[in-house]
């Protein structure tokens, strides 16, 4: 491995580009300079912290500590899903649907990868578990958030059509079938597109990182493929779970459309 270590000055130089971008935003009255700077700062602090924590973690492989980190990652992803909804579900469902779907998809796919595909020993070895789970949670999170947001927005707008179908004797599943399909589709399209364009348009982030860090390109490509497949499966699974639970929750036991189970629109 011929890893060229980055110095603090290298990073400051790169950060300078972001500052220039913020300055341009301010000069052109785009109004996003604050957001850019805050996001850059957040990213810096978070990644540095994670780097420190992972350093400790890799040295010890303490299962309790690993469990704790996993819990933090998981709940942060669940929170992110919830905060990307225009209309959330009221009560514990708001946080619950997304978080549960993430658990179902990311965790099962990560376990499968660790136990069957990569065959890490022991399977919770943090060097593999944490980056894999992070990659999966991050991507599944987007899919679940988009699908759920699409479902609730559309249900709100199509209330008249959904109720018209119920009134003609359709079951709740028949009445929401179109919306479910649309929601799933929009949740899956980003990752499908990313898979199709991988390598041609851009080198995916992980592969770029690996190559820069000195891995042979073909090895990096294989890992990238693995990740892409896992992410697609995880996103699909998560979006399906979220859309199924979410659409069920839109109806009560008398098959009435219950939009009162969604909060008022935000933003």
């Amino acid at each position: 491995m011929n890893l060229i270590a980055l110095s603090v000055w290298d990073l400051i130089l790169a950060a300078g580009l972001v500052v220039v971008l913020a300055a341009l935003s301010w000069r052109l009255c785009l109004g996003v300079e604050r957001r850019i700077l805050v996001a850059a700062l957040r990213g810096t602090v978070q990644l540095m912290l994670v780097g420190l924590v992972l350093k400790q973690l890799f040295a010890q492989a303490n299962p309790v500590l690993i469990g704790l980190i996993v819990l933090v990652m998981w709940s942060a992803a669940g929170w992110e899903v919830q905060s990307r909804q225009k209309r959330r579900y009221t009560g514990p469902w708001g946080y619950g649907i997304g978080t549960f779907s993430l658990f179902l998809s990311s965790f099962s796919v990560t376990l499968l990868a660790l136990l069957v595909i990569i065959q890490v020993e022991p399977w919770y070895q943090p060097r593999y578990l944490i980056p894999l789970l992070g990659m999966l949670l991050g991507n599944t999170m987007s899919g679940v958030a988009i699908a759920l947001d699409q479902l609730t927005r559309q249900a709100w707008d199509a209330r008249g059509c959904i109720e018209a179908r119920l009134l003609l004797g359709a079951t709740w599943e028949e009445a929401i079938a179109d919306l479910r399909r649309e929601a799933l589709r929009s949740g899956l399209i980003p990752i499908v597109n990313a898979m199709a364009a991988a390598g041609l348009v851009s080198l995916p982030g992980m592969m770029t990182g690996q190559i820069l860090a000195g891995s042979p390109p073909l090895e990096a490509a294989k890992y990238q493929l693995l990740i892409l497949f896992l992410i697609s499966a995880g996103t699909g699974l998560g979006a399906m779970a979220a859309v199924w639970i979410g659409s069920r929750r839109l109806f009560d036991d008398r098959q009435r459309l219950r939009l009162d189970r969604l909060t008022a629109a935000r933003r």
Binding site: C161, A164, L166
Partner: peptide, 14 residues
């Protein structure tokens, strides 16, 4: 709902 049919004031078509 098939036996007790409601015709809403505004019709919806999907």
């Amino acid at each position: 709902r098939r036996r007790v049919g409601l015709l809403p004031a505004e019709s919806h078509w999907w």
